[in-house]
Amino acid sequence: MTGSADGLDALLDQAVRLREAGHREEARVRLLVLRERFPDDARVAYQTAWVHDALGLEAEAVPHYVSALAGPGLAEDDRRGALLGLGSTYRTLGRHAEAVATLTEATAAFPDDNALKTFLAMALYDVGRAHDGMRLLLTVLARTSADPDIVAYRKAIEYYTQDLDAREDTA
């Protein structure tokens, strides 16, 4: 991180290191202070959301994720992480439609991210779109698995992602 007003970058780095070292509550306290001092800083909002999620305080994480994603200031990897965090947090909280909307936006923005697709598949299941979720998971599996048993059936798996109800002609 580069230098910033009032040493924000150094303070943010310290809080992140605390979280990474397992001192999550101390990191949370520091990040909440930083949020008060720098309410418009997307990086601070994202890290505050993350630590709340890590502590199992999902409902408290949501407004920080929303704030982090509301404007500019996040690096692409952090934006991806914030979208995944918000989507999965909505899902955990039973806010399934919001989870689908957030994760759909995320997969459109980051189409190669298979973690996002996996969380979207779970959210689709939650809203009664199991077919769509299964199709998405099978696509991820077929494209990413190195398991020899999956590789041997990759073409068949890919075929069924197009029509899960298709049956092989037995005549």
Rank of each mutant, 00 (worst) to 15 (best):
A61N: 08
V62N: 10
V62Y: 10
V62D: 04
V62F: 07
V62T: 09
V62E: 04
V62H: 12
P63T: 03
Y65K: 11
Y65L: 00
Y65D: 01
S67P: 00
A68H: 11
A68E: 08
A68G: 06
L69K: 08
A70K: 08
A70L: 00
A70R: 14
A70H: 11
G71Q: 07
G71M: 05
G71N: 07
P72G: 14
P72K: 13
P72I: 03
P72V: 09
G73C: 04
G73R: 00
G73F: 09
A75T: 12
A75M: 09
A75N: 10
A75W: 13
E76G: 04
E76P: 13
D77G: 12
D78H: 15
R79K: 13
R79G: 03
R79N: 06
R80P: 03
R80A: 05
G81W: 07
G81Y: 08
G81M: 04
A82F: 06
A82I: 02
A82L: 02
A82V: 03
L83C: 02
L83R: 11
L83A: 01
L83H: 11
L84I: 12
G85T: 06
G85K: 09
G85F: 06
L86Y: 07
S88E: 15
S88C: 08
T89E: 10
T89M: 08
T89G: 11
T89L: 05
Y90C: 04
R91H: 15
R91E: 13
R91W: 13
R91P: 02
T92S: 14
L93C: 05
G94E: 12
G94Y: 12
R95N: 15
H96Y: 15
H96V: 09
A97Y: 12
A97L: 14
A97K: 14
E98F: 08
A99K: 02
A99H: 05
V100M: 08
V100L: 07
V100H: 12
V100D: 09
A101G: 09
A101D: 15
A101W: 09
A101F: 12
T102W: 06
L103F: 11
L103K: 07
L103Q: 07
E105A: 14
A106N: 05
A106I: 01
A108W: 01
A108I: 00
A109Y: 01
A109F: 00
A109T: 00
